[in-house]
Amino acid sequence: MSPPRLTFAGVVGGYGTAAVVREVSGQVAPGEVLCVLGRNGTGKTTLMKLLMGYLPCWQGSVQLDGTAIEALATPARHALGISYCPQERPVFDDLSVRDNLTLMRPDRDLAPFADYFARFPILARRLEQHAGTLSGGEKKLLSLTRGLAEGQPVILLDEPSEGVQWENILHMAALIEERKAAGTALIVVEQNLAFAERIADHYLVMDQGRTVLVGPRGEIDRARLLVHLQV
């Protein structure tokens, strides 16, 4: 088994004085997906923001390939190789779809996106349209495309399937599989259990800001997950 690419240990953080994430630990190796599950309000998105540097870690460490990164700002973490697709406001609404994809590409070339356009033709059709005019689900497709195509070694996806049709969720799963095969490490926050079951190698289930269940997919069956997901 290859050494973990991204490791976080004992991470604590939140908003104002309120700790939302309490001593959560986990890791993900190249070519693997760690799925973070849990009901809403349990701290999953906050964990992502801690990993990406939007919120400071009050305690704990985050390491990329063994280097401590918990003190770095967001752009520096991106520069070291972490891509991020946020749950809310996932695209630049004021920019065209094309600009959303090519904003950081020196050549403005759309060729790297051919695979994605084949699966999500809507994006190719709306290239010149403002991303703000897309539906919520379409924005998620655009965001995922942008994030995966950055080709970085680590990708954080926060609820990529929210508002997306099942057919496209399957496409997403396939694209994620392709990235896995290329050696990318992914952490995916999900609400949709069926999607999570398709892509996950490991689960990390959170409740009230803490880890309540963690382990490889093969060792955790649906019933044990449902205990923590259903009302």
Partner: peptide, 17 residues
């Protein structure tokens, strides 16, 4: 009642449609 409601379960676990 809430726990038994199929719609509520779907919201919390996600569907395949």
């Amino acid at each position: 009642t809430i726990r038994a409601n199929a719609d509520v379960r779907a919201v919390y676990v996600g569907g395949e449609k």
